[in-house]
Design a binder for these strands. Structure first.
Lengths: 136, 136
DNA sequence: GTAGACCTTCCAGCATACTGGAGGGTCAAG
DNA sequence: CTTGACCCTCCAGTATGCTGGAAGGTCTAC
């Protein structure tokens, strides 16, 4: 009774990242080296999908791949943590919460800008000209 | 009655970025070219502090410097926007809100991990050894 | 008038996180 | 038994966002 097993391409489509990125993640210790077929193909278990999702989420939360790898390593041991490990997880949590505050501020500012703009009349701009405000 | 004017070093300490970064931001059109003294020194007005804060916040929210520059350019015109400009601002807002969701998920996962760890007994680890779970 | 802390430009290099491509093996379908 | 879609490794290159250093000018303070 093993779960579903998939090759790298299928994991890639399931997670929305490329196969190259998955190999890169393995090299960076974000994903454990998977089983291989006799011919050397990587075979992943369904569990890997959640792990990739965690990586992507943590990345969007502003953590570096290195930090994410460390958090996952902590999670993987399931062992009683020493103080350094505990503090590390708490540090990452603090990072995320700080970013959360920044994000809320930025959202507020963008909403303000949007509302300010929508209070003005639309100006004209044909779709084949690049608008003044969006010039490089 | 002009506001306070400061040189680049003072703006740097006021905003917590380096003078190099401020020059880089200018080059990337995140900051408008400031006035110069007769000898060529950049002179910033107090207003620049908020602008740098916006850039940092928007960066933490996952926007690229290019996107931030575009948003600021829109904000700067104060003009009625064409549809492209409006959509651009709305797109950035959508980016931020998506990241907000990711961030909340990641925070929840980190809190879970922290709680799970704190339920276990502390293990020992002297401060001059690197803990098993934090190995490179 | 010179030391020191500023400031200037320019150009090179770095860390992070991929991305592309060469060169080649695997495998099911026709 | 070959075509095509996969997979493999390895190595180089790219985009973003800085960062360092050279080479030199400025400005206050003694």
């Amino acid at each position: 009774m093993e779960g579903i097993q998939v090759l790298i391409g299928e994991l890639a489509t399931a997670t929305g990242v490329t196969a190259k990125t998955l190999r890169f993640y393995e090299q960076q210790h974000l994903l454990p080296p998977p089983e291989r077929t006799a011919s050397g193909y990587r075979v992943y278990r369904a569990e890997a999908i959640g792990r990739v999702a965690f990586v992507k989420g943590a990345q969007a939360a502003g953590l570096t791949l290195r930090q994410i790898a460390e958090v996952l390593a902590v999670r993987d041991t399931g062992q009683a943590p020493c103080e350094h490990v505990s503090r590390h997880v708490n540090d990452r949590l603090a990072d995320v919460e700080e970013r959360l505050r920044d994000l809320l501020t930025t959202r507020r500012q963008l909403v303000e800008l949007r509302d300010r703009l929508s209070a003005l009349n639309r100006s004209d701009c044909t779709s084949d000209t690049i608008c003044r405000a969006l010039q490089p």
